[in-house]
C-alpha cells in the first residue's frame, strides 16, 4: 500500500486532471443538452427532427466510438480543436491551451455524448410539468419562448435535477476512458502508468484511483439525495 503514500502526487495530479475535464464537460454538456432539449420540444418540425437525430446518434453510440471519432476524425479534417483554447479559461484549465490536442478531443467527445443524456433528463422534467400550465400560458398569449422561460422551465428543474445528477455521475466515471485516447495524466491513465510501466501492484493502485473517483461522485450523490428529500418535504 506504500504506493498511495509514495506516489501521492501522481494520484493527486490524476485527480486534478480528471476533475478538470469533468467540470468542463459537465458545463459543456449542460449547455449543449439544454439547446438540444429546446430543439426537441420546438413547435417547428425540422428543428425537432434535428434534436431527435442528435439524441438518437449520441445516446446509442458507445462512448469509445465517439472518442475514436473525436481523436481520429478531427485531425483528419485538419482540426486540432483550437477553438477550445479559450483565453482566460486556459489559465485555470492548462490542458486546454497545450499544443497536444488530446485533452480537447476527449473533452469534445465527452461533451457530445453526455449532452444527449442531459437533453433527455431535461425533457423528462419538462414532461413532468402538467400540460395545463403551458396551455394557460399559451391562452394568455405568451410565445413559445416566453412560455418555456417564465412558466415551464422554472417548474421543470425540480423534476430534472435528480436524473441530471445521475447523468453527471455517469459522465465522471465515463471520463476514465480518456486515457486510452491520448490524454496523459488523468486518474485512470495514471493507474496504467504506475502498474504497467513502473511495476506497482495493481490492487493498491486500483484502490487509490477508486478513492479519487469516489471523492467526486459520492458528495454529488449525497447532494442529490438532500435535494430530493427537500423536494419531498416541500411537496407535502
Amino acid at each position: 500500500m506504500n504506493v498511495l503514500i509514495d506516489k501521492f502526487d501522481v494520484f493527486a495530479g490524476g485527480f486534478w486532471l480528471t476533475l478538470q475535464i469533468c467540470v468542463l464537460a459537465a458545463i459543456g454538456a449542460l449547455i449543449l443538452g439544454a439547446v438540444v432539449a429546446v430543439l426537441r420540444i420546438s413547435p417547428v418540425p425540422p428543428l425537432r427532427a434535428v434534436g431527435t437525430a442528435y439524441v438518437t446518434v449520441f445516446r446509442n453510440m458507445p462512448l469509445t466510438v465517439v472518442m475514436f471519432f473525436a481523436a481520429f476524425a478531427l485531425p483528419a479534417l485538419g482540426s486540432n480543436a483550437d477553438f477550445l483554447r479559450i483565453p482566460g479559461l486556459d489559465v485555470v484549465f492548462t490542458r486546454l491551451g497545450t499544443d497536444l490536442p488530446y485533452f480537447r478531443f476527449a473533452l469534445i467527445a465527452l461533451t457530445l455524448y453526455t449532452a444527449a443524456f442531459v437533453c433527455e433528463a431535461l425533457r423528462s422534467g419538462i414532461n413532468a410539468v402538467p400540460p395545463g400550465q403551458a396551455e394557460a400560458a399559451r391562452s394568455l398569449g405568451l410565445t413559445f419562448g416566453q412560455n418555456l422561460r417564465y412558466v415551464v422551465l422554472p417548474q421543470s428543474w425540480k423534476a430534472s435535477i435528480v436524473p441530471l445528477g445521475s447523468v453527471i455521475i455517469a459522465m465522471i466515471k465515463n471520463s476514465a476512458l480518456i486515457g486510452f485516447f491520448g490524454v496523459v495524466g488523468d486518474l485512470s491513465q495514471s493507474a496504467d502508468q504506475l502498474t504497467s510501466a513502473e511495476g506497482y501492484a495493481f490492487i493498491p493502485v486500483a484502490i487509490g484511483i477508486s478513492i479519487g473517483y469516489l471523492i467526486m461522485t459520492v458528495p454529488l450523490g449525497a447532494l442529490l439525495d438532500r435535494i430530493e428529500r427537500r423536494q419531498a418535504v416541500a411537496a407535502r
Partner: peptide, 29 residues
C-alpha cells in the same frame, strides 16, 4: 399569440402557475 392575448380563457382545472404567487399569476400576461 397576439390573438390569444385578446381572448381570455378559464379552465376546469384552474391552471394557475404553481410557482408564482397569486399577484404574479395575474401580472404575468
Amino acid at each position: 399569440a397576439r390573438l390569444r392575448s385578446e381572448v381570455g380563457m378559464v379552465f376546469q382545472s384552474f391552471n394557475l402557475f404553481a410557482h408564482k404567487t397569486i399577484l404574479e399569476n395575474v401580472m404575468l400576461g
